[in-house]
Each structure stands twice: as structure tokens, then as C-alpha cells.
């Protein structure tokens, strides 16, 4: 384990633990199993959207299209299913594929046509926004099918289904990042696309795949969120732009790409959710929450920055020996 490289991720978990301890002081009921469970469930939605975002950011990009990919999937699912469970069998795979396809378009725009990621995904986001608004006429109020509500709020042996799903996704993401050629290539492309190209890395395929994954997880989160709120509504995806990027940043990834891990993002998602849950207990408004979010982001990214880490140069560097010639 390389302390320096994983320091940002360790810091995110350290921050989370400190936050939990703090919480137990100011709001004693907070550490109960019930409350922790509901916090984890809420974090799962952020965590799932942020999964794709993590891959895109590690690859040196950013995905601003998640809000309306999420929203489109949610709205289309309720409209197509019409509260029926049976059609979900084909609707869910179809919408997941559609989300992936949107992501693929993003990736091709970025990697093949050289459109800056911010612009490409921003344009796709507003096009989707307009598209779903035109399609629904602006006022969809379909309720979510029972089956999807089971996925979002149901339990198996007392354990929330969505947490099982999140854990499964986290395992897959971790394997993809740490144990596959795709993961290796992604870090390489995010660190230096030129070096990756010179090393024979399939840069185009790697970038497109990252965005595709982001489209997929945004669509999945949208459908699950519908199950949680029991219905789809327009604008439900908007908060997830900020939270998905914030979770990745708090989780220790550099916005420039090439570093970070989904394991860190999980901590990021949990930190954001704990903060959200903590503030009502402290009688603070949603405005205060936004301020706290901003301060937390500033602190975490500062701690991970080189300027600050040079202040900690006196700390022992675990597992890192200086080469004699360096």
C-alpha cells in the first residue's frame, strides 16, 4: 500500500469517520442502525451516479449529462410501464442500453471529434432535457411500478436491496479499475493521453467505454430513484450533477484525470449524505448545507493538492523508499 498515492482516499474515509463521531455527539440518535441504514440507502443513489462519473473523471473527462440521462430514464420508465411490473423486463434493459448509447455518443464526440468534454456533455444534457420535456409536455406524474420500488426501498432478510445492488456495483467497479486491462488503460489515458497512445493503448475505445458506463449508471440510478420517490418528476436529476462530481472530488480523484478510485467515491457519497442528514439535527437550513458542501470540497481537494502535501513532508512516507539515485 502506497500511502502517498492512496492518501486522498484514506483522508476521505478518515473524514467520514470523524464526521460520524461528530454526529454521535450532536445527535445521539444518528448512529442507530435505522438511521445509518437510511443514510446508506440515500448515499447509494449518489454512489451509483458517481460510479460512471468516477470512470469518466479518471479518464481525464467530465460528464455533465448525468442529470437528464437520469431524468429521462426515470420518466420514460414510468411512462412506458404505466405502473405495471411485467413490462419492466424489457423496459429496464432497453433504457439501460439507451443510457449507455447516450454515453457512447458523448465519448465519441470527445475522443473522435475532439469536442471538449464540458461542451459535449453539456450539449447532450440540454438536448435530452428538451427532448423529454417535449415528449411529456412538461408534466409527467406516473407512479413507479411496485417491482422497482422493491429494488429501491425493499429489503431481503432485513437488508436493503439497493445496498446489495450498490455493493455489487462497487465490486464490479473495483474489479474493472484494479483488475482489468480497461482499468489500466483508463488510468493511463487520464494521466497522459499521449503516453498512452505511444504505448499502444486503445485510447479511443477506452474513453468511449468510460462515458458509456457513465450513461449506463445514470440511467440505472434514475430508475431506482423513481422507486424511492414512488414517482418520476422533471428536474429530479438536477442535484446529481453537483453531488456526483463532488463525491468523486471528495473521494480523492484529481479532476485532471489519472488518479482516484471508486472506493474513494463511496466515501465521498457517504460524506455528502451524512452531512445532509446531520444538518436538520442541528437545525440548519438547506442554505447552510450548501455552504458546508462547498467548504468540505475546498478542504478535501486542498488536502490532496501538492501545495498542501508539501507542508506534510515531515510525515513518514509509508512504503515509499527513495531511490538512491533520485
Amino acid at each position: 500500500m502506497n500511502f502517498r498515492r492512496h492518501r486522498a482516499i484514506l483522508l476521505a474515509y478518515l473524514g467520514m469517520i470523524v464526521l460520524l463521531l461528530l454526529t454521535s455527539v450532536v445527535a445521539p440518535g444518528f448512529l442507530s442502525a435505522t438511521h445509518l441504514r437510511s443514510t446508506a440507502v440515500l448515499a447509494a443513489f449518489i454512489g451509483i451516479v458517481a460510479l460512471g462519473q468516477t470512470f469518466v473523471i479518471i479518464g481525464g473527462g467530465i460528464d455533465l449529462s448525468v442529470p437528464w440521462v437520469l431524468n429521462c430514464a426515470a420518466v420514460l420508465m414510468t411512462l412506458l410501464a404505466g405502473s405495471q411490473n411485467a413490462p419492466l423486463v424489457w423496459i429496464m434493459p432497453l433504457l439501460l442500453a439507451a443510457g449507455a448509447l447516450v454515453g457512447m455518443v458523448n465519448g465519441l464526440g470527445v475522443a473522435l471529434f475532439g469536442v471538449p468534454p464540458i461542451i459535449m456533455t453539456l450539449a447532450v444534457n440540454v438536448i435530452l432535457q428538451g427532448g423529454i420535456l417535449v415528449y411529456t409536455g412538461g408534466a409527467p406524474t406516473s407512479t413507479a411500478p411496485q417491482a422497482i420500488q422493491f429494488l429501491a426501498v425493499g429489503r431481503i432478510l432485513g437488508f436493503p436491496v439497493i445496498l446489495i445492488l450498490w455493493i455489487a456495483l462497487a465490486v464490479i467497479a473495483t474489479v474493472l479499475l484494479s483488475k482489468t486491462a480497461f482499468g489500466r488503460h483508463l488510468y493511463a489515458v487520464g494521466t497522459s493521453a499521449t503516453v498512452a497512445e505511444f504505448s499502444g493503448v486503445p485510447t479511443l475505445r477506452t474513453t468511449v467505454l468510460a462515458y458509456t458506463l457513465s450513461g449506463f449508471t445514470a440511467a440505472l440510478a434514475g430508475m431506482l430513484l423513481t422507486g424511492y420517490t414512488a414517482q418520476a418528476y422533471l428536474g429530479m436529476g438536477d442535484p446529481y450533477l453537483f453531488t456526483s462530481i463532488a463525491a468523486v472530488a471528495i473521494g480523492g480523484a484529481s479532476i485532471l484525470g489519472g488518479s482516484g478510485h471508486y472506493i474513494g467515491t463511496i466515501a465521498g457519497a457517504l460524506v455528502l449524505t451524512i452531512l445532509t442528514g446531520l444538518l436538520p439535527a442541528l437545525n440548519l437550513s438547506s442554505g447552510a448545507l450548501l455552504i458546508v458542501y462547498g467548504v468540505v470540497i475546498l478542504i478535501t481537494v486542498s488536502l490532496a493538492s501538492e501545495a498542501i502535501s508539501s507542508l506534510f513532508a515531515f510525515l513518514p512516507r509509508f512504503g515509499r523508499r527513495q531511490s538512491p539515485s533520485a
Binding site: 462530481i245 463532488a246 438547506s286 455552504i291 462547498g294 467548504v295 481537494v301 486542498s302 493538492s305
Partner: peptide, 21 residues
């Protein structure tokens, strides 16, 4: 702090919005 403009201004956006609220 040698930070990325995107992240710094994302954070100050949040802080300013919160203050406004």
C-alpha cells in the same frame, strides 16, 4: 493552493448559493 479552477469555483458556487438561501 494550486487547485483546479473547476473544483474551486464549484465549491464557491455552493458556498455562495448557500449564503443566498
Amino acid at each position: 493552493l494550486r487547485l483546479q479552477p473547476f473544483l474551486v469555483t464549484l465549491a464557491t458556487w455552493s458556498i455562495l448559493s448557500g449564503t443566498a438561501m
